[in-house]
Write a protein that binds this DNA or RNA. Sequence first.
DNA 1: CGGTTCACTTACCAAGTGGTAAACATTCGC
DNA 2: GCGAATGTTTACCACTTGGTAAGTGAACCG
Lengths: 220, 220
Amino acid sequence: MAVALTSPPKGSRAARTRATEDRILAVALESFGTKGFDSVSLDDLATDLGITKQAILYHWSSKRALLDAVIDRAALELIIEFDGALSEDGTGWSRVESVVRRIFRVAMRRPELLGFIREISRIGGDASLRVTADLEPFVTRATAYFEREMDAGRIRRCDPGLLLVSAYSTVLGAATEVEVLRAVGIEPTLRSTVVRRRELLSFLYAAMVAPEYALTQAPR
Amino acid sequence: MAVALTSPPKGSRAARTRATEDRILAVALESFGTKGFDSVSLDDLATDLGITKQAILYHWSSKRALLDAVIDRAALELIIEFDGALSEDGTGWSRVESVVRRIFRVAMRRPELLGFIREISRIGGDASLRVTADLEPFVTRATAYFEREMDAGRIRRCDPGLLLVSAYSTVLGAATEVEVLRAVGIEPTLRSTVVRRRELLSFLYAAMVAPEYALTQAPR
DNA sequence: CGGTTCACTTACCAAGTGGTAAACATTCGC
DNA sequence: GCGAATGTTTACCACTTGGTAAGTGAACCG
């Protein structure tokens, strides 16, 4: 459940304005992320919110401007969800494991957030540039972390950017690629998710951890 | 370049009908796969094809019926692209490697084909069921292959379905997640793709190949 | 208290949406 | 060659789309 990310005076008119803007952004993120930007009309959003389309257009001058605001919000929430994992204690595998667990948790509880990022990538153009720019600090931190771990010999040496992409798409796929899972005969229930996460962790463990270091750690 | 998949009398009226239907399906697959189903109107398609929207509606009674036809075609083309790799010579790693190379080739040359599968997953409902059903025989072959390789001790033992999903989403991600690549500072040029594929192969190699067997094979 | 600002609604609109009906041209079977 | 089936177009329609203009009631500020 997304909540207000900042809080002016409270009870004031400005506060209530912020609150409805938050509501709109939350519903828009949910809808855009699951159904796609073009598949959701302003009228759809307004109906879900119990307001009129023009109320939305009062806060943002166009649907496209609303999208930009949703992008910023999604990036912010993603960073909040994941950045903490990079700050957690532990090194090498244990930290990677905690990140994977977080992504799974997010994918289970808020699939629209990850779906939205995919949607933005597909829209391309300015939208992609925006989300890229928003997430840049996080990406920098993550790759820097990988580089440190490689230097310490705890993670197999390779291009940290590519490692991040591989790990990202592997986890995101296993967590969200519901139809593909169905195709291979795996119903995405809550129980199977636990199994899936464990299998994926050992997949990633094998792929990432340096062989010399692996001897001193257990993958589960 | 997709071409006609079957060929009646030739030159006949039936042949020309089939040809235009093929053209429509090809353009629809391309557009739906890159822009999304809802983002492409029948008028858009017709304009691209140099015909009128009603010509499309003559061959399929509704936009939704057209989508079903495009799904069938996409699944068929996917199977043609990948199924051959499973029949190729070689065992264990070498065969996996050839499949990965094929996926990369497809992702580079026909990104809309893979994008379309993603789009269908998002649409959900009947569309997903349809593509799942279409691809079922291929998935069965692929998992059976993994199981044989595990029995032979050439691939690390694990759930073959999950292994397929992990490999699928990893490769698909590295091949298509262009925006994410940009975010980590990798411009998706043709040269960088070669590097990416090599890195990904060693990532997959480490993840999949059984350690005992690995000693007898080189990952690149 | 009174005017102004603010958040929002009602009333529209032009452009596009998927889809229908009928006219038209070409090619086929005979 | 001729009527019929076939593929395509022109004309049209009801409905939805993003967006504008003007109005309304409440909260704010002096």
